[in-house]
């Protein structure tokens, strides 16, 4: 029983982190049909920001986790700059393929910059451990980090969904995602909506970075690459462009990884993740919650 609970909580925790990152992929994809390969690297930016700011916060007598707000701002600014300096000019002149290659280029540029700047890379850094105590309920124990990750992610996801459904800017995002031309006619400033989307997506990556380093206290310049791929797979599995899909996809990937590691072998985890991805895409090519709505003419 306790093994089972451990597998579920580990899966949910991993899955929550993937889901937070997947939201960034899916939001940007939904709005400009671009797979933002640099999105994973926003986690790295968040990770390093936390590495530097957590000790600074604690020196000032503030709680270490509050440094995440600085990381959110730094990531949002980086996200907006990437859109403003690279994606927007390329999108104006090129096509989807040129945008895609720009995203891959941006990912390498961010990783490489981090390696080259002496204050940051190239060696891994070990950040301060946060939330490293356990809560025991009977024979079952759960780490505070796990609990916080699951709860905070759930709150953020529900909040984000409500934001897109109920607020003016959230509705504008859905409009831009569905029909840019009509959105312009409504008076929506499309470029503004796109840049806000990047800021939100990157900000979520900063939160994910905090959750991740609370569990695996190591920050490297390439940490975004692996995490990013799992999150991207989550987004595709759930149905890219769909917010609930990204959440569901993240949780599924997390549970599958944790389940495989617990009951089979941790070296088999990736095999199962990608196996499930392929099977789901064979049955539902648009992803679990993805929709293919025909347009009425």
């Amino acid at each position: 029983m306790s093994t089972f609970m451990q597998f579920i909580t580990t899966g949910l925790r991993l899955g929550s982190v993937y889901a937070l990152i997947a939201l960034g992929y899916t939001m940007v994809y939904g709005i400009i049909k671009l797979i933002n390969f640099a999105h994973g690297d926003f986690i790295m930016v968040g990770g390093y920001t936390l590495f530097f700011t957590i000790p600074a916060f604690m020196k000032l007598g503030l709680p270490g986790w509050a440094a995440v707000f600085i990381a959110i701002i730094v990531c949002a600014v980086v996200g907006m700059l990437v859109e403003l300096l690279a994606y927007r000019p390329v999108r104006k002149r090129g096509n989807n393929l040129t945008s895609l290659i720009t995203a891959i280029a941006m990912s390498f540029i961010l990783e490489n910059l981090a390696q080259a700047i002496p204050a940051i890379g190239p060696d891994p850094r070990v950040p301060y451990m946060l939330f490293n105590n356990d809560i025991k309920i009977g024979s079952f124990s759960i780490s505070v980090a796990t609990l916080i990750t699951i709860v905070v992610s759930a709150i953020i996801m529900i909040g984000l969904y409500q934001f897109t459904q109920k607020t003016k800017i959230g509705r504008a995002m859905r409009c831009v995602s569905e029909d840019k031309q009509a959105a312009v006619l409504m008076g929506i400033n499309v470029n503004k909506v796109i840049i806000i989307t990047f800021a939100i997506g990157a900000g979520l990556a900063a939160v994910a970075a905090l959750m991740y380093i609370a569990q695996y206290p190591k920050v490297t310049t390439t940490m975004g690459a692996t995490l990013g791929i799992y999150a991207f797979v989550s987004a595709v599995l759930g149905g890219i462009g769909s917010l609930p899909g990204a959440m569901l996809g993240g949780i599924i990937i997390g549970i599958v990884q944790s389940g495989t590691s617990t009951y089979i072998s941790s070296s088999m985890a990736d095999t199962f993740v990608y196996l499930i991805l392929i099977v789901v895409l064979m049955v539902k090519p648009a992803g679990i919650l993805g929709k293919n709505i025909g347009e009425k003419v």
Binding site: K168, R171, A172, R174, C175, E178, D179, Q181, A182, L185, M186, G187, I188, K291, I293, E295, K296, V297
Partner: peptide, 26 residues
């Protein structure tokens, strides 16, 4: 100045009411 575009371009995945709210975005 408002426009009714060719092919309607309603927001298919939003409700009728939400579409009207979007019309009043400005």
């Amino acid at each position: 100045m408002a426009q009714v575009p060719e092919g309607r371009h309603v927001f298919a995945q939003m409700t009728v009411l939400e579409n009207l709210y979007m019309g009043a975005y400005s």
